[in-house]
Write a protein that binds this DNA or RNA. Structure first.
Lengths: 306, 306
DNA sequence: AAGCCAATTCTGTCCAGGACATAATGGAAA
DNA sequence: TTTCCATTATGTCCTGGACAGAATTGGCTT
């Protein structure tokens, strides 16, 4: 009879490794164990937690479902299989438009070079403005869907994000004329890490002849306050993806509005604000790229040389 | 008599913000307070720590000196001024080379367009390889120094980071021939957010004729394990800036090595590993860009078609 | 029904203070 | 000098308690 040997890949992870790999903080891992009874890692000789591969996998599924809106307490005691079904079951089974489907197919096949070439080709054919407002916006949506349906992995999304960044930044640099007005400072608040949304806005801005001072993601409010006069901008624009709650986004806009002089406008846009009704006093909500183009036009009329 | 009004910009940071901004863990911050009596933040109405700008600044200086080899207990009770002197005394007042100083000057003046143009010009003149290994590497170093000396603000660093990304990604896309071998998967582990280092590596890789699958920053180890076969790569390369401790970087490398098949090589590089003595078994440490070029060459010799 | 507000539950993050493994240091031995 | 070992310094982990803010529920009004 065979010995029931321990599987060679029965790897054990300490709490720091699990935090690193799942993005769940040590505090969260410990409080889940206390409250819900999962995960219950074994302990080493010094009573420190050692998590199994299986637990790590379940934690990743949980993280995914929680990001999508499930509550931890409701799902934490289901099995890995049930959780995977839950993820699979939410696909709305629509189909993407054919141009988009072709791009998605390249990502499914892990064809990095093919994807880059196809995106470049779409950019050339459509021009920057249409590429951003049609192709990239739609593609983002369907990639989100594919991810939820379990059709693509996290690393595929990472690859897509990198490639889109390469292409958008390339297009931004290559934009022929440098715009002059208005000068727009573009960034996001701490907690908002979505870079592609910012780059899309930057692309539309330069395509429309504005001048963009891009600070990337997660600039603390105080630093924005100091940067705006230093770079002599006319407008500060913030992007909030749906990772932000609507209230947090509105509060951030209002806080910034209070800190900046009246001569500088404050604009906000992105998924978190798409359904917001009322902007904080003195700020402007942009619910679409068309809104932004209109806002640029309005600014120019109001500040026309007399 | 005037009221001693509270300064308007007397910002307060909670412990999570300080962890994010200094890289010191919450546990470390609390244990320093307990042992050394610094920092002693004020408390809010619910007894939670609120750190001042001044304390944040001192923590940054301490972090820097510790990275440089000082011990916390020896320096923690010195004043900001003394610590700054300690830092200054470390570098014997070198000055940046003139080409670099000219670029820094543009950043000091907040001249975003001028900086972009100057960087593009340097890239054209030097070619991608020299631009990365000489100009960008040196510039990064001096920007760090300028930040320590208080000559530039956080938002200036943000702007620089965005512009360098634009330019490097533009150059990577524009690279004429697409390389073929080895195929290298390039990313960093969760916690490591430094994007510029990764882009520099990617630029050198494509300039040297390798094929790069870039996944951006912060890919969990398990996802790297799954991505490597999916993208059919020969090598997985990880970048660790000095935000990582050397031990954490070595542990991450080792963990990845254990998960990947032997046919895939594991390389690691970046500030955290610059002074490491011994690589985990089966991994390769790259302490410079020349090391990487040499490693590419060696791989090609070993895998030459017979 | 549908919309809105208040009460309640859920959930992540913070706290204190104790413990220990490991890295760094310094001194003794080779 | 170098090597080795004992000691000290330091970061990370532990338990269990508390609370704020988000999410949900239930009741009331339109």
């Amino acid at each position: 009879m065979e010995t029931a040997t321990v599987l060679p890949d029965e790897a054990r992870y300490n709490i720091a490794a699990v935090e690193r790999d799942t993005g769940l903080s040590k505090d969260t891992l410990r409080v889940w164990e206390r409250r819900y009874g999962f995960p219950t890692p074994v302990r080493d000789q010094h009573d420190e937690r050692l998590y199994s591969t299986d637990q790590l996998e379940k934690l990743r599924l949980l993280r995914l479902l929680i990001d999508y809106g499930h509550r931890p307490g409701k799902i934490i005691n289901q099995s890995n299989v049930e959780l995977a079904q839950l993820i699979a079951s939410r696909a709305p089974e629509q189909t993407a438009p054919p141009e988009i489907a072709a791009l998605l197919e390249l990502l499914f096949k892990h064809d990095a070079d093919g994807l880059r070439n196809a995106l470049l080709q779409a950019l050339m054919k459509q021009g920057l403005l249409r590429f951003v407002t049609e192709t990239v916006a739609t593609l983002n949506h369907w990639i989100g869907e594919a991810w939820l349906a379990g059709k693509i992995a996290i690393f595929d999304e990472h690859l897509y994000s990198e490639q889109i960044q390469n292409i958008l930044r390339n297009a931004i640099i290559a934009q022929p004329g440098r715009g002059s007005a208005p000068r727009v400072l573009l960034t996001s608040l701490p907690g908002e890490k979505h870079r592609i949304g910012l780059l899309m806005v930057e692309a539309v801005l330069v395509a429309e002849g504005g001048a963009c001072v891009a600070l990337g993601t997660e600039t603390p409010v105080i630093d924005i306050k100091n940067a705006a006069p230093a770079y002599n901008v006319d407008v500060v624009a913030l992007s909030f993806s749906s990772a932000f709650t609507q209230n947090a986004a509105l509060a951030g806009l209002g806080e910034l509005r209070a800190l900046l002089p009246d001569s500088i406008e404050v604009w906000g846009g992105g998924g978190a604000l798409a359904r917001a009704r009322k902007a904080p006093a003195g700020t402007l909500l942009l619910r679409s790229f068309d809104d932004m183009r209109y806002a640029l036009e309005r600014w120019r009329v109001e500040h026309a040389q007399r």
